[in-house]
Design a protein around this nucleic acid. Structure first.
Lengths: 158, 158
DNA sequence: AAATAATTAATCGTGCACGATTGATTAAAG
DNA sequence: CTTTAATCAATCGTGCACGATTAATTATTT
């Protein structure tokens, strides 16, 4: 029963920190008219251009219900191009336009300045990163478990 | 420049963990037709009944643009009552209905079962909680700083 | 007392998240 | 080859978040 209180506090502080972090990035990204999720898509494409919607979804843990409109907005703003794959017409290919490729340096620069301007020493949080990644994996495993096994203790019996 | 990569990773894992945690709670709360933010409001009221919208906002770091519709939905579902304060007609008082008060035990129970069922040992994450709270405070301080000081290095000079 | 400022909730518009479903296309089974 | 199953993107509806503004009320100043 004391575990619930701890879970509540942990969840709440993760929730708060996520909102704060997003707000922080939003400030750096505002001059480019980008949101944080849009920036994540660009990050994925900077690592590897020309991915499918599905691949980007695997990387960001998002599905088409979120990605379809998100990618459409990013295309609308001229960062990327969406086009059906000729080989497999189910898939949607995503690739950077020049604007998207060229923006990598200035955008990273803006974020770096924002970090500096706030004298935020993120390197202090290396341990925070490690612990939260472990928590992330634990939660993902726990949640994945009972999408496989539907429910209850009688799996595979009916 | 390496700091940006670290910040990106940290922010992304916080973002992921927040979504996973919410999903975890959502599963426990679904039988009560409650969302995680709605549960947070109930948590606040269980600690202290009869608060104003403003007070709840201070506790959850949310403002009226989010809380007004959120509280309206919670009232709609019969958990709480919203009523203008007679003393100060600007304020909106929020208090639990019987349904809201009585649900505390069964809801906490459902969450506890969910924790157990997933064999999630949250107590392992006491250190995660500490580090993330520190990160939360750092970010909040950094972001608060330049809502006070508007921008640039020439504050208070014009 | 009258004018001004501050506080508070509500409103508006946009953009995620996400459960659930649908329709198109491809792969696999019979 | 045809039927069936699997895959993938899109769509739909709901509920947050949040920047920005507005309107009502109260507090403060003059």
């Amino acid at each position: 029963m004391e575990d619930i209180k701890l879970a509540n506090q942990l969840c709440f502080s993760v929730y708060n920190t996520s909102r704060l972090f997003t707000k922080f990035y939003q400030k750096a990204l505002s001059e480019f008219n980008l949101t944080y999720p849009q920036y994540l898509v660009l990050l994925a494409l900077w690592e590897e251009d020309h991915q499918t919607l599905h691949q980007i979804g695997r990387r960001l843990h998002l599905e088409s219900n979120t990605l379809t409109p998100l990618l459409r907005r990013i295309e609308q703003a001229g960062w990327i191009i969406r086009e059906k794959s000729p080989q497999d017409k189910r898939q949607l290919g995503i690739r950077l336009k020049d604007k998207g490729r060229d923006a990598q340096e200035p955008i990273q620069q803006a974020i770096a300045e924002c970090l500096g301007h706030e004298h935020l020493d993120i390197s202090e949080y290396r341990e925070a990163h490690e612990t939260i990644v472990k928590l992330e994996e634990t939660l993902r495993a726990a949640l994945a478990e009972d999408t496989d096994k539907p429910k209850g203790k009688f799996n595979g019996l009916m």
